Computed example of a mutant assay.
Amino acid sequence: MRSKPLLKQLPSLLLYGLLLVFLFPFLLILMNSFKKTQYFVENPLSLPTSLDFSNYVSAFKNMGFMQAFANSMLITVFGVLLILVFSSMTGYLFVRFKWKLNKALFFVMLASMTIPFQVIMIPLVMIYGNMQLLNMKITLLFMYMGFGIPFGVFTFHGFIKGIPYELEESAFIEGSSRARTFFQIVLPLLKPVVVTLLVLDVLWIWNDYLLPSLVLLSPGLKTLPLSTYSFFSSYSVDFSPLMAGLVMTIIPVLLLYLFLQNQIIKGITEGALK
Rank of each mutant, 00 (worst) to 15 (best):
G79H: 11
V80R: 01
V80Q: 03
L81A: 14
I83P: 00
L84M: 03
L84T: 00
L84R: 00
V85Q: 11
F86D: 03
F86G: 02
M89V: 13
T90E: 04
G91L: 00
G91F: 00
Y92T: 05
F94V: 07
V95G: 04
W99E: 05
L101T: 14
L101M: 13
K103T: 11
A104Q: 09
A104G: 09
F107Y: 15
F107V: 04
V108A: 13
V108P: 04
V108N: 06
M109I: 13
M109D: 05
L110K: 08
A111C: 10
S112I: 13
M113N: 11
M113P: 02
T114W: 10
T114K: 06
I115R: 07
P116G: 13
F117H: 07
Q118T: 14
Q118N: 08
V119T: 13
M121Y: 12
I122F: 12
P123R: 07
P123C: 10
L124W: 06
L124I: 07
V125G: 04
V125E: 09
M126A: 07
Y128M: 14
Y128V: 04
G129E: 13
N130K: 14
N130Y: 08
M131Q: 12
M131V: 06
Q132D: 13
L133H: 09
L133T: 04
L134D: 04
L134K: 07
K137M: 11
I138V: 14
I138M: 12
T139Q: 07
T139E: 08
L141G: 03
L141K: 04
F142N: 07
F142M: 15
M143Q: 12
Y144C: 02
F147E: 06
F147D: 05
I149Q: 01
P150C: 04
F151S: 09
G152A: 05
V153T: 03
F154K: 01
T155N: 06
F156Q: 00
H157D: 10
